[in-house]
Nucleic acid binder design. Structure first.
Length: 401
DNA sequence: TCTGGGGTCCTAGGACCC
DNA sequence: TCTGGGGTCCTAGGACCC
């Protein structure tokens, strides 16, 4: 999709159409996620801070993003794709690969399919997309980037060599800034040069990646399109957040970690996974220094308070050097959770409470129900963070129904 | 007034076991 | 008193993508 989030917003609100808009996250220290083509024409770019965008384009309209709109639209668009082939792989929220090899008998040609898809997306959602048609995923992605917005680019097998010859290596998906610099230092600037490079020279410098690089330079890619439901299992679930202001109060830090742990736990439970490696990530106030520390537990967990406990455990092993700008919690080393009732009543109650909480939050929104210590304003009363495991004396003997 | 958040994959090096 | 080689699991960090 072209300028996906911005296009969806312009479609949802006609007043935004034809105007320079930027979609941003909520909160104070946000950056521009996507901007409309009108804004891009004025120099607004993804990743800019809001004030930078406004400096380029004073009339820039700031829109706080609404993920539900984008996931809904994305889902519907992928349903359109599956009318043409079951082999649809979503690369991101606004990009998919379709293998139409086996659909040509029905629809005629890839080009016909592409035109139909473009028309249907425009008709149903009022947004445009750029499509690339090529013999493999690497080249299809490359082709789709060649004409924006509303493009359709075809790379035929016999054209590959010509297209690659003078193409800058960093136009390929998978070659970023650092790789480009390394290759440039080897006097490799174009895909033509990369494709002709001695494979041994590449593997000595880059290991296994070396032979893959040579193939990429030649426009070769034999990776299959992996359809929905056949992807690898999710490997990690994490959340991180830049705080509204830098903090160094350990109480506030723990409060925030509890919130992140609940977000991670909720999503892990929704996926039906639990994990045994917990990562705590910290970025300091100076922005540049950050670290991550992980620990692997004996057992698999996905309860928010257990994730929190592990994160706090890591935190207690370090001395914070600066106020904290960003905190993150991530769980990995995942396995599918086999649903089973805990043996002890305490744990059963906790499980039921968690399930009730998840259900409410899934229906009424994140944090509709949450831990008492996360209720805003609590800290102002001078109270400190109450760990989720805390109970007033004697409450265990009370029959809470 | 600085600079988000979600991931995957790869490598290096250490601990530990047989 | 000194010694090999295979393997797994773990942590840390970097590169890359959207």
């Amino acid at each position: 999709m072209n300028a996906f989030f911005a296009s969806v917003e312009q479609q949802a609100n006609p007043e935004l159409r034809g105007k320079p808009i930027a979609v941003v996250g909520g909160g104070g220290r946000t950056v521009i996620t996507t901007s409309s083509y009108e804004a891009r024409a004025r120099g607004v770019k993804t990743g800019m801070a809001v004030w930078e965008g406004k400096r380029c384009c004073p009339e820039l309209i700031i829109v706080i993003g609404d993920n539900r709109k984008y996931t809904y639209t994305s889902t519907k668009i992928n349903e359109i794709f599956r009318d043409y082939t079951p082999e649809v792989e979503a690369f991101s929220i606004d990009e998919s690969w379709l293998d139409v090899t086996h659909s040509l008998g029905i629809f005629g040609s890839a080009e016909t399919i592409a035109y139909q898809i473009k028309a249907r997306i425009r008709h149903s959602f009022g947004i445009t997309c750029s499509i690339g048609i090529a013999p493999n995923k690497l080249l299809a992605k490359l082709a789709s980037d060649m004409q924006k917005p509303d493009g359709l680019t075809i790379i035929k097998p016999e054209e590959i060599a010509r297209v690659m010859e003078r193409l800058p290596i960093n136009d390929l998906c998978g070659i970023g800034k650092k790789m480009q610099r390394h290759l440039n230092m080897m006097s490799i600037y174009t895909c033509g040069e990369l494709g002709r490079c001695d494979e041994g020279r590449l593997t000595r410098k880059f290991g296994i990646v070396g032979s893959r690089l040579k193939q990429m330079g030649q426009g070769r890619d034999d990776s299959p399109v992996i359809p929905f439901g056949e992807e690898d299992e999710v490997k990690s679930v994490g959340h991180s957040r830049t705080l509204e202001r830098d903090i160094d109060d350990p109480v506030e830090i723990r409060r925030f970690l509890l919130q992140l742990s609940e977000m991670v736990g909720n999503r892990a439970r929704r996926y039906g996974v639990s994990g045994k490696t917990i990562l705590l990530y910290v970025r300091y106030a100076d922005f540049f220094s950050s670290w991550g520390k992980q620990t692997t537990l004996k057992s698999y967990i996905n309860q928010s308070d257990e994730i929190y406990k592990a994160a706090i455990g890591i935190l207690s092993t370090v001395e914070l050097e600066q106020p904290v700008r960003l905190l993150g919690v991530c769980i990995s080393n995942l396995k599918h959770q086999v649903e089973q009732l805990p043996l002890f009543e305490d744990e059963r109650k906790k499980l039921f409470a968690t399930q009730a909480m998840d259900k409410i939050n899934d229906r009424f929104g994140t944090m509709a129900v949450t831990f008492g210590s996360l209720i805003p304003g609590k800290e102002k009363a001078g109270s400190h963070v109450i760990p989720p495991s805390w109970r007033p004396d004697g409450i265990k003997n009370m029959d809470i129904k």
